[in-house]
Amino acid sequence: MAISELKLPASVRALDFANPALLAEALADKVAGQLRQAIEQNGVATLVLSGGRSPVMFFQCLARQVLDWSKVVISLADERWVPVEHVDSNAGLLKRYLLVGDVARARFIGLYRATASLQAAADEADQVLAELPPIDVLVLGMGDDGHTASLFPNSTNLAEAMQAEGTRRCLPMRAPTVPHQRLSMTRTLLASARLSILAVQGEGKLTTLRTAVAGDDIAEMPIRAFLHSSLEIYWCP
C-alpha cells in the first residue's frame, strides 16, 4: 500500500519514495529550498527538527546543502531531559550529524537545561523560545501510538500542550518509554510553522496514519492536530 491511497484531507500533500535514501535526499532538497527562500525574503530562516534514529540520513543530506547557514536558526520540536553528551540527546544527534562543517555557522537554540527539575527546565526553555524567529520549516516524526514531538497520548500536561491557542511554547512531558522525562514545543508553537512536513518510514506508520485520519480525538492521537492543516507527508517503506 502507498501513502497516496490513504484518505487524507485535501490540504495534505503525500509523497511516496522507494527507499530511505531517496526520501532523505528529496526532503533535504525541499527544506534547503524553503530556507533559501526565507533568507531571500526575510534575511533569516528558522528550521525546527525532530530527533530519533530515522532522521540521521536526512540530517547528513541536509548538511551537504549549500546555503548561507549563518542566517539560519535551528531548534528542536522536542528533547529528552538528558545532557547533550548523552546518547539519547536530540541536540547531541544534531551536533553529530547536522551541525558540522558549514552548518555549524547556524544558530542553535536547544531545549535542554541542567536544572533541578523538569518543570524548571521547561520554564527556562519556554523563555528562551521567545527569541525564536517565526518558524519557516517544521519537520515532524510520528510514533506508532500517534504521538509527534513529545506530545504523547495520556501524558501529563497534554491538554495544555494541545491547546490551539495556548500561551506556552514549551512544556514538560512524560513519555511511556525511557527516557521518560521530555521537553516539548506545544501545539501552538509547532502549528505556527509556515511549512510543516511529516517524515515517516515503514508499513507500520501507514497503519498509524490510517487510524489517525479515521478519527478526530487529538488526545488519543496527537498527530491528528497536524493532519488537518497544510502539511506535506514524506513516506517510504
Rank of each mutant, 00 (worst) to 15 (best):
I3M: 05
S4K: 13
E5A: 15
K7L: 15
P9M: 13
P9E: 13
A10L: 02
A10C: 00
V12Y: 12
A14N: 07
L15I: 09
L23A: 10
L23W: 06
E25S: 13
E25C: 09
A26V: 11
L27Q: 10
L27M: 14
A28M: 12
D29E: 15
D29S: 11
D29L: 14
V31P: 03
V31H: 03
V31W: 01
V31C: 00
Q37K: 10
A38K: 00
A38T: 03
G43K: 07
G43L: 08
V44I: 07
L49K: 01
G51E: 08
G52M: 05
S54F: 08
S54I: 03
P55T: 00
V56T: 07
M57A: 14
F58K: 08
F59H: 04
A63N: 06
A63I: 05
R64S: 13
V66F: 00
D68L: 01
V72A: 06
V73Q: 03
L76I: 06
A77I: 10
D78H: 04
E79V: 10
W81C: 13
D88I: 11
D88N: 15
A91D: 11
L93F: 06
L93W: 04
R96K: 11
L98Q: 05
L99V: 04
L99K: 04
G101E: 04
D102Y: 02
V103E: 00
A104S: 11
A106I: 03
R107C: 07
R107Y: 02
Y112H: 12
R113K: 10
T115H: 12
T115C: 15
A116M: 11
A116C: 09
S117C: 12
S117M: 12
L118V: 14
A120H: 12
A121I: 10
A121C: 08
E124D: 13
Q127M: 10
L129F: 09
